[in-house]
Nucleic acid binder design. Sequence first.
DNA 1: AGCAAAGCGGAGACGCAATCTCCGAATCCC
DNA 2: GGGATTCGGAGATTGCGTCTCCGCTTTGCT
Lengths: 225, 225
Amino acid sequence: MLPSETPSESPALRADAEKNRRRLLTAAREVFAEHGLDVTLDDIARHAGLGVGTAYRRFPNKRVLIDELLVEQLTTMRDIARAQLDAQDPIAGIRGYVQEVVALQVADRSLKQVMFASDRGQKRVEEARAGLGPAVTALVDRAHDARLLRDDVLASDVAMITLMLSVVVDFGRGYEPELYRRYLEWLIAGILRDGPATGQPPIAMECFHSAMLTFKMGAAPKPQR
Amino acid sequence: MLPSETPSESPALRADAEKNRRRLLTAAREVFAEHGLDVTLDDIARHAGLGVGTAYRRFPNKRVLIDELLVEQLTTMRDIARAQLDAQDPIAGIRGYVQEVVALQVADRSLKQVMFASDRGQKRVEEARAGLGPAVTALVDRAHDARLLRDDVLASDVAMITLMLSVVVDFGRGYEPELYRRYLEWLIAGILRDGPATGQPPIAMECFHSAMLTFKMGAAPKPQR
DNA sequence: AGCAAAGCGGAGACGCAATCTCCGAATCCC
DNA sequence: GGGATTCGGAGATTGCGTCTCCGCTTTGCT
C-alpha cells in the first residue's frame, strides 16, 4: 500500500534487514509525531530498539529517511483536500479540509513542519508538495463558483488559516488540544461573502509561494558573518 | 528615561566604558530586532564595533543583557494596553492594542519571542511580564461591561489572536508586512457579541498560563535520553 | 551442519556552533 | 608620566548532532 513499505531496493534485502528497515520507518513515524522532525537518527534507532549503525546503513542520511515519510504525509493531506470536493456544501468542504488537517497536527507534531518546510527536498517530495496546492485551490474555486466567498478570497487565505491554527495547536498541546476549533470558526466566517469587511487584500499566490521558500517556523536567518 | 540606560552600577564606570556599555545595548536592540533573540553575544559585539571580551566583561552572560531589554519591551506593551483603555470604543481599544503590538513585531523580530518566551528570566523580567496580563484583562473587562463581547470571551482570546497574527507577520516578512491586518479583522469580528457561533470555549486563564510556561515557538521537547 | 556473506551494535571520531576566558596592547585620567 | 582600567579577539571549553568503523552475530545457501 504505502510506497515506502515496498522493498524497492534493487538487491533484495535479507529477511531480518527488511524487517528492521520497516521497524525504523515505523519508529520514525512515531518519534516524528511526538517530537517533530528535529530529532536525531539516534533517537529513532533507539526507539526502534536498534543500533545507530543499522539506521545509517539503511538510510544514507537523515534526510532520506525523512523524505520517505514526507511524501506519505503530503499525499495524505492532498487526499483530504480532494475528498472534501465531494462535500455537499463548498464551505463545509473548506472547513472540513482545514479541520481535518489541523486535527492531524494535534496527534503529529511533524505535520506542521512538513507543510511549511522551507528546505527543499528530493524531487519526490517537491512533487508531492506541488500536488497539495491545486487540491486546495479546487476547493476554493468551487466555493467561488457558488458565490459563497468574498471575491478577494484566495487559496492563500486557506493556507494562512491553517498556519495560524497550527500555532494554536502547538500552544495548547497537552492542555486544550481542541482549542483550534474556536478560532477555526472565526476564521471561516471571515472568508464568507457576508463576513467582516477588510481593507487588507490577501497575499498573492506567487508571493505566497516565495514566502513559503524562506519561512521557517519561529526562526530567523542568522546575521551574515 | 529608560531604566537600562542609567549608569546604575555601584562603582562608576570610566567614561569610555560607559559609552561602550550603551553602544552594546543599542546594538543589541538592533540585532534582536532584525534577527530575534537567537543571536550570539559575538554578533552583538561585532555589530557594536567592539570586541567580544568587552561585551562579556560588561554583561556576565547573554541572559543579563537580554533581560535588560526584555523589561523594556514588556513595559512598552503594557503601556500600549493601558493607553487603549482611553479609546472611546472598547472594541477599538482591543483592536488597537492587538494592532499596535503586532505592528511592532513587523519591525522587531524579538518581540514575539519576548511575549511568548517560556524560559523563566530574572525577577525583574517576571515582574514586567506579570504586568502585561492585567492590562489586557482590563481592556477585555471594559468591553464586557459595555456588553459588546460574546459572554465567553476571555483575555486569553486576545492573547491567542496576538499569537496567531505573530505567525502571519513572520510568514509575510519581506513580502507582505501588512498581511496581518486582514486576519486581524476576521478575528476581532469573532469576539463580538454578534460574531459567529462557536462550540469551542476559550482556554481558561490558569490553563493559558500553564501552557505559556511550556510553549516554545516552533519547537518540541527532545525525547528523554 | 558448515561457512561465507550480510547484517548488527554502539563507542567514538568528526564537525560545527555557542559561550566565555585570558592576557598583551591600547587607552584613559589624575 | 604612569598606574589603573579597558579593549580585542584568539582560542579553550562545552555540547550536540552526524556519521563511520570494525569486531561480533545472524542468515540462508549447499
